[in-house]
Write a protein that binds this DNA or RNA. Sequence first.
DNA 1: AGTTATAGTCTCGGATGTAGACCGCAGTTG
DNA 2: CAACTGCGGTCTACATCCGAGACTATAACT
Lengths: 139, 139
Amino acid sequence: MPKAPASNHPACTEAARFAAVPPGAPPDPSVCPVRDVLDRIGQKWPLLILIALEPAPLRFSNVQRAVGDISKRMLTQTLRDLERDGMLTRRVYPTKPPSVEYALTALGRSALDPIAALAAWADLHHDTIRAARQQFDAA
Amino acid sequence: MPKAPASNHPACTEAARFAAVPPGAPPDPSVCPVRDVLDRIGQKWPLLILIALEPAPLRFSNVQRAVGDISKRMLTQTLRDLERDGMLTRRVYPTKPPSVEYALTALGRSALDPIAALAAWADLHHDTIRAARQQFDAA
DNA sequence: AGTTATAGTCTCGGATGTAGACCGCAGTTG
DNA sequence: CAACTGCGGTCTACATCCGAGACTATAACT
């Protein structure tokens, strides 16, 4: 088997787009939207950062404190990625210890609707999951 | 600063639980529900597997084909994790080439509501995000 | 003078993930 | 008969990722 093109995934409602691409056309590496976007926000750090910024914009250190256990390295990188995707803005204030404020954009804020639903689900089913784990581990 | 306990995260509605723990009590490593659950389903493979199983139960190889570019190793491990969390069931049929069927549980199915919302959001805003990326990369 | 706070960058080592070989077994194909 | 395929994994080797911690410069505070 020649290995799937890594894109014809059932959740991708635009899968037909790929079937319609004439052979020989540019490969269009931005696979199906679900994959492309989930590769970003379907991870814990971006999710947690967006959640942390929901009540109010925060500066770098405050984001780190809010998330808790993210390394500076990951924080920097994830903030850059989110900025690149238009989910948040980065504004530098030329104060003496320079301060940088990260704020959600409208797009980032709109992402919080499904994310909040996910968080609510997590909160609601946490006990069930913990029970399932205990039962599984017992066997 | 002695580093945050990695749990008092604004989205955690049960943060008070930790403040209420008497000092010296067992550390209870299962931090806030949001963190605990997001560490699992806030990753791309579990998400994509749950989405793949939504229309119908699938066997191992079919899950791999549906997801597209997951390695067997990761697939095995992620399926085990999801089984442990009670999100899906694993049933072995003693056919000659043995077949193993993975099916969502009620819990797993319930997780698909917020996940589908996330996928719908991804689909809807994909073009906006791609545009933001192009603009960012131009600078 | 030394400490603190700011927002990062850099490097190192360990954890994590991927690719691919391999297994035993049965049906299919040459 | 003999080779190959598909099944559900496991195992090994390699690559990549990620966290911990050191380091930067500047200015205020002790």
